[in-house]
Design a protein around this nucleic acid. Structure first.
Lengths: 135, 135
DNA sequence: CGGAATCCAGTTAGATACTG
DNA sequence: CAGTATCTAACTGGATTCCG
């Protein structure tokens, strides 16, 4: 199949046998495989603000390439987290908006962001101290 | 430097200029860079159950290699999420336990896991339908 | 505009062998 | 036991080009 291309189905479809799953973890990996990548969170956060067109998303998220935006939105679409509406005008117009599930995800993300802000300094401090000690 | 080795300091130290950060995102990326990898969550979840030795962790997390366990625990240690105690016995013995910050992270992870469990089926369903439609 | 198709560099993680 | 040190396969993401 080969990865790194635009297709989404192949690579995500393969690891259905998700792997080891002690008892507590079950499922977290699925979410992390979704939001753990480089752009998904940024797209979700942007869409949490409202409906966005492809270009608007790209402009709102500096640095994202056309390809990565396509891949990211498609994966979210595929998982039912984002709704995709195509207006067959010329030039074409495609709108993205969070679904109900997508909105609940964006809230979970916000919770994680809160944790991050709260402990950011503690982590940075620990890191500095560690780096200093390990000469 | 070169990555993929056992050293942890280099690669994590570089991206201090984290990148684009609209306004809402700020910080989430830090957390995701930590827990978004393949093993961190599993290690944290296991340590949430109590103190563990290196070998115990490895046995509790099927599939993790010695190298990845070393890298994962070290990063957590470096960030002050995990405490590492060495008993210079023979054979050597090293204990890992979550710090206070680490415990709060494990709760945040649990929240994400809850979300995951709640929406797992919805996502799987959406995915199936999508795959079916996109012949 | 909204992609799709290629090509390519950097990073991550697995396998293996060796050490105090 | 608890790591280190290498080497290598796999995957992720960036740049570029082309298309309806």
């Amino acid at each position: 199949m080969s990865v790194g291309h635009t297709a989404v189905t192949p690579e995500v479809g393969a690891p259905v046998a998700v792997g080891p799953c002690g008892e507590d973890d079950c499922g977290i990996r699925d979410v992390l495989d979704r939001i753990g990548d480089k752009w998904t969170v940024l797209v979700v956060v942007e869409l949490a603000k409202g409906v966005r067109r492809f270009r608007e998303l790209q402009r709102a998220i500096p640095g994202i390439s056309q390809r990565m935006l396509t891949l990211t939105t498609r994966r979210l679409w595929r998982d039912g987290l984002v709704e995709r509406t195509v207006y067959p005008t010329i030039p074409p117009q495609v709108e993205y908006r969070l679904t109900e599930t997508g909105r609940s995800l964006s809230e979970a993300i916000r919770a994680l962001a809160d944790w991050s802000r709260e402990h950011k300094d503690a982590i940075a401090g620990a890191r500095e101290r560690w780096d200093a000690e390990q000469s």
